[in-house]
Simulated scan of single mutants.
Amino acid sequence: MADLSELFAADHSSALARTAALDAGEVPDARAHVELTAITPGDLETLGEIAAEVVRFGTGDLELEEVDLDHENLAELPPFLVELLAEIGRTEEPDALTDIAARWAATGELDATAEELAVMLADIVDVATTAQREDLHVYLWTEPLD
């Protein structure tokens, strides 16, 4: 499992540039992003399964895709997952975010409390919402393993 992850909104070329900067240990621009600890593509897929059930969003592709052979630590979230994450921010169900975070914490896949995951989830929802508003994609970068 990676030590550091970052979820961000960008177009393809900006995503590759941001990944190169992150791989080099640089701090890229402050574009819509959230730094995450040890989040993997599988963790986001689990989040998607839980969120789709809570907000009754239906089913769709949740599997993150590798973006570029030269950047194996960069994955793109599928459009369905981005739409689903943005929907969490629009739902009229007031407890949806905390319910999703509690269920995500209960999986035991992440070493975090429901309260910590609720804060993280709110940040993830913000990135997805920004991506939809600005017609961007959402990417997950994970720290390269040595």
Rank of each mutant, 00 (worst) to 15 (best):
L4P: 05
S5L: 11
E6R: 11
L7E: 05
A9T: 15
A9E: 10
A10C: 08
A10K: 10
D11W: 06
H12R: 11
H12T: 10
S13L: 10
S14H: 09
A15P: 05
A17F: 14
T19V: 13
A21F: 13
A21E: 14
L22V: 02
L22W: 10
D23L: 14
A24G: 09
G25T: 06
E26D: 15
E26R: 13
P28F: 15
P28D: 10
P28E: 08
R31Q: 09
A32F: 12
A32H: 12
H33D: 10
V34E: 11
E35G: 12
E35W: 13
E35V: 11
P41G: 12
P41C: 07
G42I: 02
G42H: 07
G42R: 08
D43L: 11
E45C: 01
T46Y: 03
T46W: 03
I50V: 04
I50C: 01
I50W: 01
A51D: 03
A52G: 11
A52N: 03
A52K: 02
V55G: 00
R56S: 13
R56D: 08
F57C: 09
G60Q: 04
D61A: 12
D61K: 03
E63C: 11
E63Q: 11
E63V: 15
L64G: 00
L69Y: 03
L69E: 10
L69H: 02
L69N: 04
A75N: 12
A75D: 11
E76H: 02
E76S: 04
P78F: 07
F80L: 04
L81Q: 07
L81M: 09
L81P: 09
V82Y: 02
L84W: 01
L85T: 07
A86G: 09
A86V: 12
A86M: 06
I88N: 00
G89V: 01
R90A: 13
E92V: 12
D95K: 13
A96Q: 03
D99P: 00
D99L: 12
D99T: 15
I100Y: 00
I100W: 00
I100M: 01
A102L: 06
A102H: 08
A106G: 03
T107R: 02
T107V: 06
L110W: 01
D111H: 07
A112G: 05
A114F: 00
E116L: 05
E116W: 05
L117C: 04
A118F: 00
V119H: 02
M120A: 13
A122F: 05
A122T: 12
V125L: 01
D126H: 12
V127P: 01
A128C: 05
A128F: 05
T130R: 08
R133G: 09
D135E: 08
D135M: 15
L136G: 07
L136M: 13
V138C: 03
W141T: 02
P144Y: 14
D146T: 07
D146V: 10
